[in-house]
Nucleic acid binder design. Sequence first.
DNA 1: ATGCATGATTTGATCGTTCAAGTTAGGGAA
DNA 2: TTCCCTAACTTGAACGATCAAATCATGCAT
Lengths: 342, 342
Amino acid sequence: MADKVTIADVARAAGVSRQTVSNALNTPEVVRAETRRRVLDVVEELGYRVNQAARQMRTGRSRLIAARIDPEQDGINGLVGDRFLHGLTETAAHEGYRVLLYTADGDDAETAAFDDLLGAYEPDAFVLTATHHGDRRTSWLAGRGVPFVTFGRAWSEPDAPHCWVDVDGAAGTEAATRHLLSQGHRRIGFLGWPKGSGVGDDRREGWRRALAEVGLGVAGLHRETEDDVAPGEHAARDLLERDPEITALVCASDSLALGALHVARAPGPAWLAGGHPHRPVAVVGFDDTPVAKAIGLTSVRQPLAEVASSCLRLLTHRLDGGAGASPEYLLLPPSLVVRASG
Amino acid sequence: MADKVTIADVARAAGVSRQTVSNALNTPEVVRAETRRRVLDVVEELGYRVNQAARQMRTGRSRLIAARIDPEQDGINGLVGDRFLHGLTETAAHEGYRVLLYTADGDDAETAAFDDLLGAYEPDAFVLTATHHGDRRTSWLAGRGVPFVTFGRAWSEPDAPHCWVDVDGAAGTEAATRHLLSQGHRRIGFLGWPKGSGVGDDRREGWRRALAEVGLGVAGLHRETEDDVAPGEHAARDLLERDPEITALVCASDSLALGALHVARAPGPAWLAGGHPHRPVAVVGFDDTPVAKAIGLTSVRQPLAEVASSCLRLLTHRLDGGAGASPEYLLLPPSLVVRASG
DNA sequence: ATGCATGATTTGATCGTTCAAGTTAGGGAA
DNA sequence: TTCCCTAACTTGAACGATCAAATCATGCAT
């Protein structure tokens, strides 16, 4: 049963040389149409498939793209990576690439992983996720001339030398805020992360912008805290108690939003901690995680499959096509998934 | 900096032959201790790393393990695969392997993917997930002598020729049921999937066993339905209305459990559909998804990291060590995560 | 002193592919 | 006719590692 058909086998069966077979497959224009036809027929018939390892030896190209799989986050968020990876794998297969996984905890561990991978498997490129200020990974790769794209803009460099794809978080929170305004809410708070995280600041900005557009200020309307349910609950309670006129909250994540819901939904169901009697408050989250869907939380959804395919297209364009002149930046719009919570 | 250190470079610098370098790294026992020391020093100094492609050409071993990444399920369940993949990647790296991703929708598409991968990248083995009755994938691989392990037992064959690792679902639902019994519940229902799915039947069996142990029957106490929230809600309502003495429900998944909660939690909070006034009913789910954590649902947790590392150890043992005589089967116990719901 | 087994190292060949250079045949221009 | 040019194809070498077989000491028994 089909044990290793090599290019030589095909050449013999088609009555041509190895190189002609190779050309018929990789550089069709230099082979006479009729010859090419004959070769391709034999390829089909024998079930020939190019051996990547051998090709890689000669060309230096592995057709592998390396991506990190995040350690299991403690829950609600963090499975964003799963959807992204799936999209990446699918698009990659389409373009003749495969995705190679690695794990790493922290920037330094990750650059060490780069080094390992490049030494052994020689992936053609890397896809980085979760970029942040002062990201050491990008400079490491750039310094060695390794191609890569990031999911997440280059926060520290307005015109970075590498390609990136990102989701317009500000547009997302802006849409969420507008939605709440259209529902009649006038005093809309924001629950976010401490300043300095690019993503968090961006999401807060969209909320601020939407309010500013209709002439509303934001003083005293926001809280910053760690990205988890309990802190979110705490911050929401604080915010709502200090400003009794707040009727809606926009949150930087579904985790925070879930915490906010614990406070906002009145009367708190017995099984939710903190059933503090309170006026009903609309809540919007971010990421549209399964949790949001399960509990009816309105949330901003990132087009992860599209982000993934864009990342890959930018990469393969540069890898296969010309060297590519200036880097491309792609900012994709998120969408608002409206549910019962707001 | 550091462009391609080959084994020849190391050999030259250490004053030995290529083969001796290779031996020092792969077959230390045939090299004199002092020579080996010298070679390893040079390896370290030059930063030599073996080139996988070249090694693969000669040995036929790629040190790649292929695993499928599931298409994004519609939500609540289905991100089980994420935790599993992460564990797999981590353990693989430890054993000198890397995980290669592929996608496929359905058994036939998956065997086609096997064929593609084997032709091009030649992974050393496959890890299959979600085994089921009449699984065409296992016979395909076995027929070609490709090594593989499955996460999920071989449902159709009591003594399959291949290794598998699985979680003892019956033990999980049994523990859940016992827990409810210990809380004083006597009439405990079960929400599961239509008979014929190995996993579903297994989980129902654990519940039945626990009740039988204390002399309770199961007649009229269970419902079977599709694995989603709405069907779960519907089935739960039906079950609870027909038997007013049921005070607790064990479910085959968190999706079903969430549906059940919509009915069970009384009075239904306004934001949950189906706030049908009802007595409080305890609910236990299965898989301990983020949703379970978020809403305080007691659930059975699968030790996915352990499953992953076990899968990999079984594989590498067979790949690196001897051919391995008879296949090993591993059934790991799940654990019950108790939360507010039951 | 000779032969032989054993341990340590080296040499040549090979995996399957593509690059670079070489060969052949067929036109067209001089 | 001769020469050159181009299209189409072929040949040899190389990528970097390991396998298999060959070489070279070294020690020990005869």
